[in-house]
Design a protein around this nucleic acid. Structure first.
Lengths: 340, 340
DNA sequence: TTGAAAGCGCTAACAA
DNA sequence: TTGTTAGCGCTTTCAA
C-alpha cells in the first residue's frame, strides 16, 4: 500500500479511501490510484483490514454431515449469497460428533468469523450452546434452536401435506419413519403426521411409527420391521429422502409392490429421489433459497438489525410414481416421462 | 493478552510464549499463565496472529459443484484432515461458472488463505491459472492440472478395469458415455475404455462413444441416442455414477432390461448408486482419503517440502446387479442381498 | 528465563 | 479533499 501510495503520489490514507470507493476522494485521484493499484497488481490484505476493522468478512456454516446432498446443496446457496455480499464461507462438519460444535463456535468467539449458521440444531444436553447463542451472531437453519432466529420450512405443515396426500389416495394404515429422537424437525414432522391422521379421523397407532437415523439403511431396516409386524400397512411417510429410498428397497425385498401394495412418500426433494426407480413422491424444500435466506438473515443479525424469530420458506408436495399409479413402463414411454 | 499478562504478573511476550508452548519459558510460569488464560476465558486472536506471522491457518477448497455428493464427500475428508492439523477450510463453489476460479485464487494471493485445493481441473483457455499455480501453494485433486501436484486415482486403469469387467461377462458392443470435453479425467477414462477394448482385440467404434455433462439427465439422453442408433449395444460404461443412473433409466424406458439386455457400469461409487434399483456396478473411489491426502500434500507444499508430482490412491471395482446376473427379486431375498 | 519494543498492513480519527 | 498518526492484537527479535 505504501508502494502504490508513492507511485500514485498520495498518502496511504488516500489509497485506502480511494480503493474502497469512499465518495469523499476526488474522482481524478481515485482513478489514478485505481490505475496504479491495478498496474502493480495490488490487493488489499484482508487480514490487516480485519485486524483493524474487527470484522473478518467470513461466516461459518456448520452442518451435521457435509457428504449429505441435502446439506451440501443448502451450502451452495449459502456460499453463493455470502460471495455476493463479500463474505467468504468457512465450513464446519460434525460428521456425527456433536462435540465439535464447540470448537466451531470458538472460531467465532475468537474472531475468525463474524457469524455462524447452524444446520445442526441443539445437541442434547449442550448447555454451552445456550450461552454461546447469546453472545455470537447465530442463525439456525432447517433445525430450530431455542432463542435463535430460524430459517426453514414449516416441517409440521409439510408432513401433514404429504400424509394428507396418502390419505387422499385411500391409504388408511399409514406408517411413519421419523428422524432421530433429538431432532426438533423430526418431532415437527411426526406432529404433522399425527395432525393429518387426526384431520381425517384416523387413529394414531404407535405401532405404526418407527425411528430411523436418516440413513438409507435405517429406512430399510425400520420398514422391514414395521411391515413384517403390521402387514396391513398401505403407506409409509418417511421423514427424509434417504429413509424413503430404504423403505422402497425394503418393500421390494419383501415382495410388496410400490405403489400397488404400499405407497411411499419421502421428504426433502433430493435429485436422486426424483431419478430413483420408481421416482419418489416427496416434499421439495427450496434448498439454495434456504441457504441464501439464512445468510441474508445472519448479515442482519450481525448488523444489529431486527430479524423475525422465524422465517418459513414455501415447500412443495411433488407426487411421483411411489404414490401415484402410472401407466405401465413399456416401450411406448418417452424418456421425458421418467425425467419429469 | 495485556490483561492476562497483568493478571499473571508477566509481560505479553511471556504470555505469547507460554501459550504456544515455547519450551524456553519456565514451567511454573507457563502453568500460571495457562491457568490465568483459562480463568479469563482468553482466546488468541487468530487475525492478529495471522497478520504478524503472515500465515492464516486456512486453506481454500474449490469444487465445481458442492451440491454433488462426490465432491461434498471429498470435502468431508478435506475438512477433517485440515481440522486435525489446525487449519480451517474455506469453500469455493464454481457451480458452472469457471470464471469464479480467479476470484478464489485471489483470496490466496491476497493472503486470506495459505493454500488451495482445486477439484476443478484447468478450465479451457484459462492462462491466468498457469501463472497462478507458479506462485501459490496448489494441489490438484481428482482433476489434474499441468505443473501442479496431483492427488487422485488412476482414472485410466480404473476405466479399463470396469470395461474389462464388462468384456469378461461376454459383452462385445460396449458403449461409453464420457464426461465433458475439457475434463482430463474424462479423457483418461475414455483412454482406459479404449485400452480395455484393444486388450481384448475388440474394435473401437466411434459411434459407441457419447459425451455427457456428468448429469443424470445427460446420461439418460446420450443413452437413448446411442441405443436407438446402435440397437446391438450390450453394455454401457458411464464415466460417473449420475450418468450411469441416467443410462439405466433410459434403458428401462426403452424396454431393454438391465443387466439382461444391456449391462451398465458407473464410476465413482456414490451411496445412491449402491442403493439404486438395481444396485449399480461401479468403481469406488476412496473419497475421504482423497481429501485428506490432498490436505497432507498441500501442507507439505506450503512448507516447501518435496511432494510427488502425482499421488494415486487405490480404487476398487464393485460388481453389482447392473452387470452381474442375480437371482430373481422375490420374497425369498433377504434384505441383506440388496444392501450388499 | 524474561521484558521492551518494533512492526505485520490496514483504517479512521483528527487536523489541515 | 488530503495527510498524519495511532493502534487493531499478536509474535519475535534483541537486550538484559
Amino acid at each position: 500500500m505504501r508502494e502504490i501510495a508513492d507511485a500514485a503520489g498520495v498518502s496511504v490514507a488516500t489509497v485506502s479511501r480511494a480503493l474502497k470507493g469512499d465518495p469523499v476522494v476526488n474522482e481524478e485521484t481515485r482513478a489514478r490510484v485505481a490505475e496504479t493499484a491495478a498496474r502493480l497488481a495490488y490487493r488489499v490484505n484482508p487480514v490487516a483490514r480485519s485486524l483493524r476493522t474487527q470484522r473478518t468478512q467470513m461466516i461459518l456454516a456448520v452442518v451435521p454431515d457435509i457428504g449429505n446432498p441435502f446439506y451440501s446443496y443448502v451450502l451452495a446457496g449459502i456460499e453463493d449469497e455470502a460471495q455476493r455480499n463479500g463474505y467468504a464461507v468457512l465450513i464446519g462438519n460434525l460428521s456425527g460428533d456433536a462435540s465439535r460444535l464447540r470448537a466451531y463456535g470458538d472460531q467465532v468467539l475468537s474472531g475468525r468469523a463474524d457469524g455462524i449458521i447452524l444446520l445442526t440444531g441443539r445437541p442434547p444436553g449442550d448447555v454451552w450452546l445456550d450461552d454461546f447463542v447469546k453472545i455470537a451472531p447465530v442463525v439456525a437453519l432447517c433445525e430450530p434452536i431455542a432463542g435463535v432466529p430460524f430459517v426453514g420450512i414449516d416441517d409440521r405443515a409439510a408432513a401433514a401435506e404429504a400424509v394428507g396426500h396418502l390419505i387422499s389416495l385411500g391409504c388408511r394404515r399409514i406408517a411413519h419413519i421419523r428422524g432421530p429422537r433429538h431432532s426438533a424437525a423430526a418431532d415437527a414432522r411426526e406432529a404433522g403426521y399425527r395432525d393429518a391422521l387426526a384431520a381425517a379421523g384416523l387413529p394414531v397407532d404407535a405401532k405404526l411409527i418407527g425411528t430411523g437415523d436418516t440413513t438409507i439403511d435405517s429406512g430399510h431396516r425400520v420398514t422391514t420391521t414395521l411391515v413384517v409386524a403390521q402387514p396391513d400397512i398401505d403407506a409409509i411417510f418417511a421423514a427424509n429422502e434417504e429413509m424413503a429410498i430404504g423403505a422402497v428397497n425394503a418393500l421390494r425385498a419383501l415382495g410388496r409392490p410400490v405403489p400397488g401394495a404400499v405407497r411411499v412418500s419421502g421428504c426433502d426433494g433430493l435429485e436422486f429421489g426424483a431419478k430413483y426407480f420408481p421416482p419418489l413422491t416427496t416434499i421439495e424444500q427450496p434448498r439454495p433459497d434456504l441457504g441464501s435466506t439464512a445468510v441474508a438473515t445472519l448479515l442482519k443479525v450481525m448488523h444489529n438489525e431486527d430479524v423475525p424469530s422465524m422465517k418459513l420458506l414455501p415447500h412443495k408436495l411433488v407426487a411421483r410414481a411411489t404414490t401415484v399409479d402410472q401407466v405401465d413402463h413399456t416401450h411406448e414411454r418417452t424418456t421425458q416421462d421418467f425425467d419429469q
